[in-house]
């Protein structure tokens, strides 16, 4: 009866998710199986194209790189923040999430100004005499990765601060009183207990980068096409909505698969559930 009551209370939210998320996604996927060429024709076309495979591979590669870099930067920052005294902690958290106050397009646009041919970075390097000709940094995979790391690190920090703060100080003290060096305490106590947060952060950042559109569009262009920008092109330039739906379906499946894999990994690594 108690479980039933929970479901009743959740039903408005469940209804909302079913009507506005599950049904549209299913409708999108259904259209890709009802083409004249047979149920799998569009998928054969997708995976048969070297270019589309390259875009898919690049998207996974960029998203994984962004996730790993964001994990490292986010964890170190969150560790410092969670150990800071109260007043400093508030200031640090505000500073960390400050970029979230502006939109994705604005933040990506800022990188156009930093990385451009006459941008801040190139003109600084030239005036320091380190280079004579500006580097081509825009419209490269590196530019997309840098901008996305900047975009997603605040999310990672927020997720990890909460988790790191919830690790009881007693455990750390117990570890050192039993003779563990700070590095051993970190590796054997803090890090394993932070695994759930690391996984949540990684899932957020990975899915965010995998489905991103504005950043690769602005900083990558056609040279660094990713799944989001390819889907836009299929839908809005060639008007091939079935091909665009196919891309969407591939993205949904891969996202679910990777999130499931991360969750499985979390369950194995988490000392609380193992």
């Amino acid at each position: 009866m108690k479980r039933f009551a929970g479901w009743t209370q959740a039903s408005p939210a469940t209804l909302l998710v079913v009507v506005f998320l599950v049904l549209p996604v299913l409708a999108t996927i259904v259209t890709t199986f009802t083409t004249p060429g047979g149920p799998f024709a569009t998928y054969a076309a997708f995976f048969g194209s070297g270019f589309r495979r390259a875009v898919l591979f690049r998207t996974i590669q960029v998203s994984l790189a962004v996730t790993v870099i964001a994990l490292v930067i986010g964890f170190l920052t969150a560790y410092v923040v969670s150990r800071a005294p109260g007043w400093l902690k508030s200031i640090l958290i505000i500073a960390a999430v400050f970029p979230l106050l502006t939109g994705v397009v604005v933040r990506s646009f800022a990188w156009l100004i930093i990385l451009g041919k006459n941008g801040i970075l190139n003109s600084t390097l030239i005036s320091l005499g380190l280079i004579t000709e500006p580097f081509q940094m825009l419209y490269t995979q590196g530019a997309v990765i840098v901008a996305m790391v900047y975009l997603f690190v605040p999310l990672m920090i927020l997720t990890l601060v909460g988790v790191l703060e919830s690790i009881p100080d007693d455990l750390i003290q117990a570890s050192s009183s039993l003779g563990a060096k700070p590095s051993a305490t970190f590796m054997q106590v803090t890090l394993p207990l932070a695994v759930p947060g690391l996984i949540v952060g990684a899932v957020l950042v990975f899915t965010g980068s995998f489905t991103s559109y504005a950043t690769p569009q602005l900083l990558g262009g056609e040279q660094v096409m990713m799944m989001g920008t390819l889907m836009y092109q299929q839908a809005m330039v060639t008007f091939d909505w079935v091909a665009a739906s196919t891309i969407a379906a591939v993205m949904v499946v891969i996202t679910i698969a990777i999130v499931a894999a991360m969750n499985a990994m979390a369950r194995r690594l988490n000392p609380m559930t193992a």
Partner: peptide, 15 residues
């Protein structure tokens, strides 16, 4: 011809 041409264009600029 556009669909095929856009693909070839992508292959030139996007690979």
């Amino acid at each position: 011809a556009k669909g095929g041409w856009v693909d070839r264009w992508n292959e030139i600029f996007g690979m």
